[in-house]
Amino acid sequence: MAIESSGWATMGDVAEKAGVSKITVSRVLRSPDKVKPETRERVRAAIAELGYVPDEAAGGLSSRRSRIVGAAISTLAGSTFASTVDGLGARLRQNDHQLLLAGTDYSSAKEADAVATMLGRRPDGLVLTSTTHREETRRTLEAGRVPVVEIWELPADPIGYAVGFSNRDAGAAMAQHLLATGRRRMAFIGTAGEGDRRGRLRYEGFAEVLEQSGSAEVRATAAAAGTQTARGARGLAAVLDRWPDTDAVFCSSDSLALGALSEARRRGLRVPDDLAVAGFGDFEFAGEFGLGLTTVRVPGLQIGETAAQLILDVNAGIEPGDRTIDLGFEVIARVTT
């Protein structure tokens, strides 16, 4: 049985582009070993160029809408995107839609697989926490006829829509806060993930302010292995082993900051007297009834709700006034600085 297209490039388009029959295209998709290698490669090249996605749900839907929204989330571990997923799912359920989740581990290859799989289910929209995509993924998304919302960042040229805040400005704001407390020898602790663009932007904003101040020095390290907490501990250890006079660290997430605080305690350092520690995200454990961690608070729940509403509005024929929605951030000063 032939696979029907998901609403943009059709199987017929692929067949015409490759100079083969629709049956041959179907065989390449279902039983590639039964097709000659040169024909198979020609069909696959046409699929990539046209952004064709097989519709695995074809024939099984009674209406044009699936009432499913897909979300490719950089990580499903920890608290990073928890409130955003909660907001996204809740707003969709209020409008009789369901959320389909996939974790990408900050990998553009895994994101590409997730996007292809989700588009095959004919979703009513897609939400992506990454704005760094493979060229073929972006081409497929741009060719699609579903709303795409990139979140937690504000790309200059969003695929469809963007909801988030400026990570660069957030890093800059934390640098200004630490400068105001008298710190001058500061370090940034991030991760070495392939797709952690947000962390890099936070570092760039942080470093830029310190460099412009003319009175502060910034050091940076990234730990690639282990849990976020373990990475934070290893990151602080690396910083202090190389620069023992460091007087403040800004971590690209609260989970990293938790590890840094644990390493500081292990070394007998007093926080904030000997070392100031700041994080990002304002996770529940960072609050006044937890660690009392200085951090950057972002409106995670609102980001999810807004992304969901954008998709619902676009599918209802309501065009948003702006393609990019900046929900801002806030530096929350607590006892660790």
Rank of each mutant, 00 (worst) to 15 (best):
S5T: 09
S6E: 14
G7D: 06
W8P: 00
E16H: 08
I23S: 10
V28E: 02
R30E: 13
K36N: 13
A46S: 12
A46V: 04
G51A: 07
V53L: 00
V53A: 01
D55I: 07
A58Q: 08
R65E: 07
G70N: 11
G70C: 12
T75P: 08
L76Y: 06
S79K: 04
G89I: 01
G89T: 03
R91S: 14
Q94M: 11
S108P: 12
M118W: 13
R122Q: 11
P123K: 01
D124Y: 10
D124N: 08
G125R: 03
V127L: 08
H133T: 06
T137H: 08
R145V: 09
E150T: 14
I151Y: 05
L154C: 11
P155K: 10
A173V: 11
A173E: 15
M174C: 10
A175D: 04
Q176D: 14
H177L: 14
A180G: 13
T181Q: 13
G182V: 03
R184Q: 12
D196A: 08
L201V: 00
R202D: 08
A207M: 08
E208V: 06
E211H: 12
E211W: 12
S215I: 14
S215N: 09
S215W: 04
T221P: 02
A225I: 02
T227K: 07
R231P: 06
A233T: 01
L236K: 13
A237K: 08
D245I: 02
T246I: 12
D247N: 11
A248L: 11
S253N: 12
L256P: 02
G259N: 00
A260T: 09
R265N: 05
R265K: 12
R266S: 04
A276P: 10
V277W: 07
F280C: 09
G281M: 03
F289A: 13
T294H: 10
T295Q: 08
V296R: 02
A307F: 07
A307L: 02
D326Y: 15
L327M: 11
V331Q: 01
V331M: 03
V331E: 03
R334E: 06
